[in-house]
Design a protein around this nucleic acid. Structure first.
Lengths: 236, 236
DNA sequence: CGGGGGCGTTGATTCAGATCAACGCGGCCC
DNA sequence: GGGCCGCGTTGATCTGAATCAACGCCCCCG
C-alpha cells in the first residue's frame, strides 16, 4: 500500500517524519499502512507489546490507565500529528497505557522494527524522538501542576485554550464529555458546570461538539489561579 | 579531581553509568566533578540552560515548577541514583523546572557536552537514557493517576510504600514535610493528618525523620482506592 | 413511526480537604 | 543561657467538588 498518503488523501506528516532524512523516511514508510478507526475502539490494549508506532493523522486518541483495582483515568489526549507509543516502540517494551479512539481516527502504523532501524541510522530522527518524549514529559508535568493548583473551572478553561491559538475562534470538541472530564480529573457533572459557568460569564459559547471563544485573552485571564492561591504551592 | 569516587568515598553509580561502555564512562567522568549541597539550596534555576547533567548520589532533590502567576508545585522528588535533567542536557535545552536540595546532597556534575558525545558514540548509553526518560514519564503518569483517583491518605501511604521494598522496615524522610505535601498535592496540614491517621490505624509509627512500617502489606491495602471509587475514572 | 438507551445536563446533599488560627517544640543565633 | 523563629501539629470552620438522583434530548434500532 502506498503510505505517504492516507486513503483519504491526507498527507502523512508530524514532527517525527518531518525530521527524518530521506532514507529514514523511506524505511519508516516502506511497510507502513494507514488505517481508520471508529470512535470508541481500543487501539492499543494496556500492557500490550509495542510492535507498531502509530501516528495520528485525524481524530483524537485518549491514553488511559486502568489500575489493577479498577480505577481508570485518562492520562492524555493526543492531537493529530502525535506519534505513540514512541518510547515503548523504540525500546521494544510493553506499554502500560491503553489507547482509545475518542473520535473517528485516521492513523498510520509503522512497524516498531523499522522505527528502531531508522532511528539508529538517522541521528536527526533520534534527536527528534527524544524531543517528542521530552515534550510529552512536560505536558504531563503541566497537567500535574494543573491538578495541584487550579480548580475545575480553570482546568476546563485551560483545556480549551490549548486548542485555540487564534485570539478568537471555534474549538472543536469531538471527544465525549466524560473522556474530557477524566482527562481533567473531574466528574462529567463538574465539567458541565464549569463549562456552563464560563458561558454564563460570557467567556464562551457552547455548542454540541464545538465551543466558540469570542476573546481568548479574557478566557486566559479566567484560567489563572486567583492571587494568593496556594495548595501544593510551597517555597522551601 | 578524581570523580569516580565522591569526596565522601561514595562510588559514582546509577543506571546511566552502569550501562555505558568503558570508553563512554571515561568520557563522562573525565571532566566531571563532585559537589555537596546543603538542604534548601537551589541546584538548578527554572529555565536555566542545561549545561551539566547531575547524578544524585546521596540526599534528595525536588523538581519544582513555579508558574508565571506564582503558583509553585513540587513535580517530582528524586532519589539517589537518578540523573537530571537528562533530556534537557541531551538536547541542550533550557529546562523549565527548578531543582532544589530537599536534604543535604552529594552529587556529580557532568558537562552536557560530554554527555552528548558519549551518548552519540555509545548506543547502549543512548538506549539507557531513553529508558530513564520513559521511566520518568511513567512516574509522572502514576502521579497523575494518584491525584485523580486517590484521596490524601492513600497518596501519603503510597508515597511511603515506594520507599520501602522490604515487607517491613523503616523509611527515611529527610525532606521537609511541606515539600512532601507539595509533591503529593495537598497542604502540610492534610499530610500531617493523613500520616497521623495511618499511625492511629496501627499501620505505621511516626518519628522525626523516619517512619517505621510494621507491615508493608497492610499499608498497601490502605493505599488502594475503596471499591466503587470513581472520579476521573471512565470507561468510554 | 415509536420506543429505548446513552449522553449531557441540572438540582440537592454530603464530604474531603483547604483555610484560618493557634500552639508546642527544637534548633539557632545572639 | 535565653529568646526567637521556623516547622510540624492540632482544632474549627468553610467551600469546591463528588455523590446521588432525576430529567430532557437525540440518535439508533426495531
Amino acid at each position: 500500500m502506498q503510505a505517504t498518503r492516507g486513503s483519504g488523501g491526507v498527507k502523512v506528516t508530524g514532527p517525527l517524519l518531518a525530521a527524518a532524512s530521506a532514507e529514514a523516511r523511506v524505511r519508516l514508510l516502506m511497510n507502513a499502512h494507514a488505517l481508520a478507526v471508529p470512535r470508541g475502539r481500543l487501539i492499543i490494549a494496556q500492557d500490550a507489546e509495542a510492535d507498531r508506532l502509530f501516528i495520528l493523522l485525524q481524530g483524537s486518541v485518549g491514553l488511559g490507565f486502568a489500575d489493577e483495582d479498577g480505577a481508570a483515568t485518562m492520562v492524555e489526549i493526543l492531537a493529530p500529528g502525535e506519534a505513540f507509543p514512541l518510547s515503548a516502540a523504540l525500546l521494544r517494551l510493553p506499554h502500560p497505557v491503553s489507547a482509545t479512539a475518542l473520535a473517528p481516527c485516521r492513523l498510520v502504523a509503522i512497524p516498531a522494527e523499522d522505527l528502531r532501524e531508522a532511528a539508529a541510522a538517522d541521528p536527526a530522527l533520534m534527536h527528534t524522538a527524544i524531543e517528542q518524549m521530552t515534550r510529552q514529559w512536560r505536558l504531563l508535568a503541566d497537567q500535574v501542576v494543573d491538578l495541584k493548583t487550579r480548580d475545575a473551572t480553570q482546568r476546563a478553561a485551560r483545556f480549551l485554550l490549548r486548542r485555540l491559538s487564534a485570539p478568537r475562534g471555534a474549538v472543536e470538541i469531538p471527544e465525549p464529555r466524560g473522556a474530557i472530564a477524566a482527562r481533567l480529573g473531574m466528574t462529567p457533572e463538574s465539567l458541565s458546570r464549569a463549562l456552563h459557568g464560563l458561558e454564563a460569564a460570557g467567556l464562551l459559547r457552547l455548542h454540541a461538539r464545538r465551543v466558540d471563544v469570542p476573546d481568548r485573552a479574557a478566557l486566559l485571564r479566567a484560567a489563572q489561579p486567583r492571587a494568593g492561591a496556594s495548595q501544593g504551592a510551597r517555597r522551601v
